[in-house]
Write a protein that binds this DNA or RNA. Sequence first.
RNA 1: GGGCGAUUAGCUCAGUUGGCUAGAGCAUCUCGUUUACACCGAGAGGGUCGGGGGUUCGAGCCCCUCAUCGCCCA
Length: 1046
Amino acid sequence: MTTTPDPQDIPSRFDFETAQDKIYDAWQSGGWFHAEPDSKKKPYTIVIPPPNVTGALHLGHALNNTLQDVVIRMKRMQGFNALWMPGTDHAGIATQARVEKRIKDLEGKSRHDLGRAELVNRIWQWKEQYEERILGQLKKMGCSCDWERTRFTLDDTCARAVRKTFFDLFQKSLIYRGKRLVNWDTHLGTTVSDDEVENKSINGHFWHFMYPVIDPKPGEPHHVTVATTRPETMLGDTAVAVHPDPAAALSKVESELKAKLKKAADSEHAAINDQIEALANRRKEMLSDLELLRDMANDGRMLKLPLADREIPLVTDVWAKPELGSGCVKITPAHDPNDYEVGKRAGLPMINIMNADGTLNAETGSYVGLYMKQARTKVVDDLEALGLLKEVEDRAIEMPMSDRSGTPIEPYLTDQWFVKMDQLAQSAMDVVESGEVKITPERYIKGYLSWLGEKRDWPISRQLWWGHQIPVWSKACPAQADADKLIADIKALKSFDENLASIQTEASSETDSEKRAQLGLPDFTLHVCVEDASEALEKELESLGLVREEDVLDTWFSSALWPFSTLGWPEKTKELDYFYPTSALITSRDIITLWVARMVIMGLNNLGQVPFNSVFIHPKILDGNGETMSKSKGNGIDPLDVIDKFGADALRFGMASLTTETQDVRMPVQFECPVESCQAAIPQTVKNRVLPVVECPKCKNKFRTQWAESEDDLKLPRGPVISERFEVARNFMNKLWNASRFAMLNLEGYEAAPIKEPDLTVEDRWILSRLYTVSQNVTEALEGYRYAEATRTLYNFAWDNFCSFFVEILKDRLADPDRRAHAQRILVFALDQLLRMLHPVTPFVTEAIWEQLNRFAAERGLEKVSTASECLIGASWAELDSKWANTEIETQFARFQSVLGSLREIRSRQNLPPKKAIKFLIRCDEDYAASIEPMGGYFNSMAAAELVSMGANVEAPEINALIAQDGIEIFVDLEGLIDVDAEVKRLEKEKKKLEGNITGKEKKLSNEKFVGSAPAEIVQRERDSLEQLKEQLVKVNAALEKFAKA
RNA sequence: GGGCGAUUAGCUCAGUUGGCUAGAGCAUCUCGUUUACACCGAGAGGGUCGGGGGUUCGAGCCCCUCAUCGCCCA
């Protein structure tokens, strides 16, 4: 049964709550998101930056995904075979830490209580739940991802890619195991990467200790003084260092200070001079002592390490700074990154004093079992008791903290797996330098290149259970012969295949064979990497006593493969062949190095082709105080709250319009009072954003925030966190909806027919010309990722051109039976084009209007009529023939707009009621009159003003209001209406302004230098403009004189 | 310490290769319920373009410098 559609049924507001889900389902069931390789079409591919499965999406994700969807939708409409590949990231450490904490909180169990298999099982459950929530959020936002292809970085397809890549790099010896000082999170019991460490400044102390010198010679000191912020690490000291040439070092510092002084501002001089003076004193007082210590070091003097009761050498190294402290520094190679370097240079032993859980190990004697912090107190006490504590200073110290657990990081010497970066990094630098991979905005190239340029090896092992387990089986070999035998045994295994297993021999890092023997260290460790899940071989290796590596890979290892692992690599799938390399990557700046660079590396290594040709880095969203948004601060906005209040289109439009090339966008945040009748927006402050309950200052009712915990608080309604910055976009959606509604209400009797060019009026040609220009601008802007420009162009066109002028003018024509049919056709066509252009940014409302338009005018077109596509998502992109571009018409129309503006201004300043009909005349030349003539009637409908006459010789009415502009005069007949005071006031103001401008221009033009050097065109422009201003002034003066006489 | 960026109306932001009187939205004020829209319409007021110096006929834009803020790296 079909009912006749009645446009009166269309509500005056877009009911986005119900429409969004319906429309989204229709897109999905229509298969519009799915892309299959098709040689007849060009591919356009984007892979989503996979959100972590740790929690819910925030506004940053909303921004990121909006930008991707806008591009994907435009490309789809442009006829590309557009694929947006979705998925999520297992986010190893973040997720495991989160689930572990939850289990600890709820069940009081640690991961060790559960065991590896059970913990991993629990995390999978968590993942299922959160992944669904995240994908649900993306769908609510309207993201047109190909959900049939959804991947997860830990699924079988990705696992296969990881294994293949690992094997390949292992075989090329680009993966190796080695002892390294890593950032150890004692709470989580794992390494964290540098990027997961945040340095925090805290108040600490600087302890000065004295270490006794063994057998000092006459004249030599009996103690050396060292200072440290970490006293407990002294148990692992293996040397004390002094600078090899303290005099030269001091001189160098001094000359640097002097250079700084020259450049510095006056206000800094005093401070720098103080430093120079202090340095000179130091030279006087300490240099000879330091040189003596240096000589002692060179002479091989040993020190007694207190408490540990070991002998350690005094050595020379440039790390010791003669300008600081005592000039001597204790060296703890296994627990400090700088000392580690010294240790390597000086060939010092490296003594690890810590267990993985952050307690001290057996190396520390009586301190064993104490946590670092406990040991600190005890070490200080014990040294004091021995009389070796010289001094304690208060001092701000930099403390490395783990992002993941929030606990202090311990530098820790362990066996870790690394990717050798030199060649790989270079390849990734080359493709950006050559422009094969284009980064927008360009300023981010610098950071990318300098980070890769360091070519630091990438530590890829993590002591976690949630992740890709490293596919290496290892066994220690006490001596060379054992290793040789083991290799022979492995090669003789039934399942052994050189293509599937690769063997590496790791020589012990302890190069002294005697020491190795002493410590019971093996000469070699044999590592076998097994390519695919060849269980038979794995079993056989294990039967030979090889044990699989427990560690898993850094999350970024699997993320780095994302652009091709999602397409099925290493299988040679038709998807990989067709969609790779992808077209664009849209992401935020904090992961340029962690992710973007590594994808380029892996793409080049695995496929010999870059993973994408274009990278767009978008801004970050900050709150009104310029702080990053986060749930932990309470200033985070849930995209779903914005969608609930303003609609998904408003969220998207708002996001896109914020995307300029600057780094950050500020978004003031408000609580919204949940009381239906109130809905007050309460600005968020640093104070109220952490309260569990907030009282609405307007209606005095209370509501709860994300912090509410008590039972009473939880009973209150929730006050969502939103931002009024989406209001503009919401209002725009409403405007668009209602303009379209107006069109539907006026389509009765519509009959499709081609539009004949001679029938086109000035405003028709104008809107076509505007449509052409706007579609060009929008296309160019979006292709260059200039989202804010695109949305601004669309907003201005839709509101100011289409609604305020075109539709307004059409009202007149639609009411005239003779002109109605043509007006309907051109209105339908213009709306059709506008919807196409807006669809990528605001897909829901445009799709809803499209559906309506199809009910009333399915057949439409400009010169050729055809049936519109059923869904806007599948319609073609708006591209008018360039023949419609018409600057003359645009100028002509601008004149009309300008006259209309003047009439409205006079109305307003004369306080004339809008309905009060007025008459006006234009004094102008014939040309001007001819160009205004076709639109003369519209002044009636748009300003209730009748154009009485036009031309060079029109007589000004006896009593009038005047506006002189563009070389013409507009006189409004005000017989019996005029407010003389208002008119005089306004004319005088005008006069003053004109005089000011004229003086300025005359001055400029009398400047010979200007006339002589500026381009002739500019000078002429100034002359013309001066001429016109003078003419206007004459007219204004005449009008004033007339009022003076009257 | 090094790098990147920002500073334009009360607020949030535009401003192209240097060139007419520096724009928009919100907020404010005045007027208006006109048959699509009050999430609306018409109009108005509001700016030493962070400070200082320089280049230029001409600087919001280019150069130097200072200040404040943000981010990244050490």
